[in-house]
Design a protein around this nucleic acid. Structure first.
Length: 193
DNA sequence: GCCAACGTTGGC
DNA sequence: GCCAACGTTGGC
């Protein structure tokens, strides 16, 4: 799971981790997003497909305390707000596809802050790649509500019909299409369903 | 806390 | 390169 770090950071898209060799080193590096695994072939392949031209993202983080290897991984949107410059370093991403998306990000692109593995999962706010707090959602958008739209849109061909949150369930950094992003934003203005 | 989904590892 | 075993994610 992604683990934003509690300190200032540079561009999320700028880090160049050493490619390749698998290591069991579990310590999270100070300076860069350490991602275990991924053969060079796999990296090359997936950097070309996927939606690497996306300008919109969804990034998951756990807002409730959970100890993993002796470290509390909790990092909520409130924690992000509390950082110096409201900016964090998003490391702890291990999955290579998620890592590739991190590398594809460009400064100033917009990203939803998603609360995962918690009592109420859903989209809590907006960030820009840096990774900096922008604002809270006008209202919290629960996963359950998004799922309802996803199901309906699969039938109707609506904007959330293939949202990665549901089609790529375990991906912690995911691209959104413009349509998906706009639709989620439009939900802010609606009554909770 | 349970466990389904799914990503990763490693023997063959 | 297959695939069973294993580990992790994350909803519920």
């Amino acid at each position: 799971m992604p683990r934003p770090r509690k300190r200032l950071a540079g561009a999320a898209g700028s880090d160049k981790g050493p490619a390749g060799k698998r290591t069991k080193a579990k310590s999270i590096g100070e300076a860069s997003a350490k991602v275990e695994n991924a053969s060079p072939q796999k990296i090359a392949a997936s950097e070309n497909d996927e939606k690497s031209l996306s300008s919109y993202w969804l990034m998951k983080s756990e807002p409730e305390s959970r100890i993993e290897k002796g470290v509390d991984v909790k990092f909520s949107i409130e924690d992000l707000k509390a950082q110096p410059r409201q900016t964090a370093c998003w490391d702890g991403v291990r999955n290579y596809q998620a890592r590739n998306f991190l590398r594809a990000m460009r400064l100033e692109e917009k990203a939803f802050f998603y609360h995962s593995n918690c009592k109420e999962p859903g989209i809590a706010g907006l960030m820009k790649v840096d990774v900096q707090f922008v604002r809270m959602m006008k209202r919290f958008i629960p996963l359950a509500e998004l799922k309802t739209y996803h199901q309906a849109h699969k039938a109707s061909g609506g904007p959330l019909k293939s949202m990665a949150l549901f089609t790529r369930q375990r991906l912690s950094i995911q691209p959104l299409t413009q349509e998906e992003f706009d639709f989620v934003l439009s939900l802010e203005e609606k009554e909770p369903s």
